[in-house]
């Protein structure tokens, strides 16, 4: 009725939404970075599912290679973001942004 690629693709779309909700609403900066990683992971899942043609066919290697590159770059960006958050927390004693204080 519904094939595996569609199940994983739609799951990816829902994961993007869940991550976006967290990214927009959470105030703790580390949780925001975490939510952003969830968004990225959902996009990877949609991309990978789009390249999947069922168990009988070999999965497309090009999306897989791009996703592996993406996972590594996401870690590099996360490490830089965490470094910035630690420097911000050390300088201000805050873990949230003042513009979210309303």
């Amino acid at each position: 009725m519904i094939d595996p690629a569609t199940v994983y693709g739609l799951t990816g779309a829902a994961v993007v939404g869940i991550g976006l909700y967290g990214f927009l609403s959470l105030r703790h900066l580390l949780r925001r970075v975490l939510a952003f990683n969830v968004v990225g992971s959902g996009i990877f899942l949609m991309f990978g599912a789009a390249g999947y043609r069922g168990a009988a066919v070999e999965a497309d290697p090009v999306p897989q290679a791009l996703i592996i590159t993406g996972i590594v770059v996401a870690l590099a960006a996360t490490a830089l973001a965490v470094g910035l958050i630690l420097a911000y927390a050390g300088a201000t004693g805050r873990r949230t942004l003042p513009e979210d204080d309303l």
Binding site: T6, L10, G12, G17, Y21, S25, L26, R27, R31, A50
Partner: peptide, 26 residues
């Protein structure tokens, strides 16, 4: 501390993005 702000607008925006992405995927 208060863990989140604007939860409802964020949820609506996120749901909209998910529906659009799912529709595009299909």
């Amino acid at each position: 501390y208060r863990p989140r702000v604007n939860a409802l607008p964020a949820a609506i925006a996120a749901a909209g993005v998910t529906v659009a992405l799912g529709w595009a995927f299909l």
